[in-house]
């Protein structure tokens, strides 16, 4: 009886085609989902937790304000301004050669005047006293910014 033997394989290396297929799919996924080099100016801080937080689709019309407690009567507010690579401190009031200027208010007023859809995102440390948030809300109201969003860390509600 004739014996059936395994055909002799001429290919000595593994077939990498399925590997390339999978890796290419992963690369396309990561390229679509990853946000590389895109920053909204959000700084690292512990945000308050919330369940009902929503996504903001239109981040183009927003300015993110980072509000921090520096143990002063007013908080430190920083934001990423257009044309800057890093966040800049925006003071409530500053004296420039005898002239009192309000950089935060002026910035919000200018942004609001040019864009009726303008929104502010407030990122505040969860332990910061409310009195430090108050001046930021006042300035937003003075600048006629109606849409104020509070950044929160999402937690899952128990079912």
């Amino acid at each position: 009886m004739r014996k059936h033997s395994m055909p002799e394989s001429n290919v000595t290396h593994p077939n990498v085609t399925p590997l390339i297929d999978v890796v290419m799919c992963l690369i396309i996924f990561f390229m679509l989902v990853a946000k590389i080099g895109v920053t909204s100016g959000a700084e690292e801080m512990t945000l308050p937790k919330a369940i009902l937080g929503q996504d903001i689709k239109d981040l183009g019309n927003t300015l993110t304000l980072n509000v921090r407690n520096i143990n002063q009567p007013l908080p430190m507010v920083t934001a990423l301004l257009p044309g800057h690579h890093d966040t800049t401190e925006l003071k409530f009031e500053e004296n420039r050669g005898g002239k009192i200027e309000r950089p935060l208010l002026d910035l919000l007023k200018a942004a609001r005047a040019n864009n009726p859809e303008f929104k502010v995102i407030i990122r505040g440390e969860q332990d910061m006293p409310y009195r430090l948030l108050e001046p930021v809300l006042f300035v937003s109201a003075q600048a006629n910014v109606k849409n104020v969003n509070f950044a929160t860390e999402t937690v899952q509600a128990k079912k």
Partner: peptide, 27 residues
Amino acid sequence: VMVILIFLMLAGSFGGVERYLTSNVPI
């Protein structure tokens, strides 16, 4: 391709857990 994949996995920041509570009347 592997180098590109590893770079994207390490450098990419993905949709985190940050969400927003919206108010139309600030104060």
